[in-house]
Design a binder for these strands. Structure first.
Lengths: 135, 135
DNA sequence: GATATGGGTTTCCCAAAGGATACCGGTATC
DNA sequence: GATACCGGTATCCTTTGGGAAACCCATATC
């Protein structure tokens, strides 16, 4: 037998025929603008409405002012966020989602739900392990 | 007026009262295991069925063997992927999604769709700019 | 005997991400 | 007068992500 290339994998992978290329590209495009540790959490933090710099910082936790400042600029550039300086004393700055960023709603919802579920799964599996260890 | 803190932002941001904390944590948890340029594209590339190392490499394109190897190990550790060595000559290695990774289906679908849509938007807006420039 | 393929590993390297800390001007509060 | 808050900057530093290229063994093919 001339080295059966299917190897039980089913003749050929569709992706090998470039059928998945568009999907992979889509995901890579999305990740290109949403990359990093903070962009999605930040967008999520603004879904309930506009917020100010320090408020955002407190909400998302851990993020330093420098990083927050840079991430917000990125989000502004990519038209996810609008920055407004309010003429109060002292000035306050409001960050607000753009209509376009609302198109990310489902992505963010699914990711959030998955994350919550994943944490519970991890915790549950740790409990099981602890029980096994204490035997 | 005692410096109205609402600043037109609506009395207080819910997040400031910690109401969004679970959501932010969920997103951060998800990103923690799905971080980087490659994990989501890789999982997507496997959604059509098992595939071998080189096949995956060709499908996602650009990824070096070293990085692919490391990413697949990560995915294995987090129970998204199963690695199977088949006793052929030469050995072939099959990577396959776990049932758990199927829970990412919606996340990946939404991200992919968004990415495809986003690329079209960018292209469309470039066309508009070109027209404006050529006036 | 040379070359190709599969499935990687090793080494070296660079750029980017991101954290820590200090600081800024202006205002308000104790 | 000291302190705190707001919305950031500037500087320095470490970590990581990830690319390039070489190499590995084994088989198979020309």
């Amino acid at each position: 037998m001339k080295n059966d290339l299917t190897n039980g994998l089913g003749t050929k992978h569709p992706c090998a025929q470039n059928a998945c290329a568009e999907g992979v590209t889509g995901i890579r495009d999305a990740l290109y603008v949403l990359n990093g540790k903070w962009k999605l959490p930040l967008i999520f933090a603004l879904t309930e409405g506009p917020a100010r710099f320090k408020d955002i910082q407190r909400t998302v936790g851990d993020i330093t002012a420098k990083v927050l400042s840079k991430e917000l600029k990125d989000l502004e550039l990519n038209e996810f966020v609008i920055r407004t300086v309010l003429p109060t004393t002292p000035v306050t700055v409001s960050y607000e989602l753009t209509p376009y960023s609302l198109s990310l709603h489902k992505v963010i919802k699914e990711l959030k739900d998955w994350g919550i579920q994943h944490r519970q799964r991890i915790i549950a599996s740790r409990k099981v392990n602890n029980k096994l260890e204490s035997k």
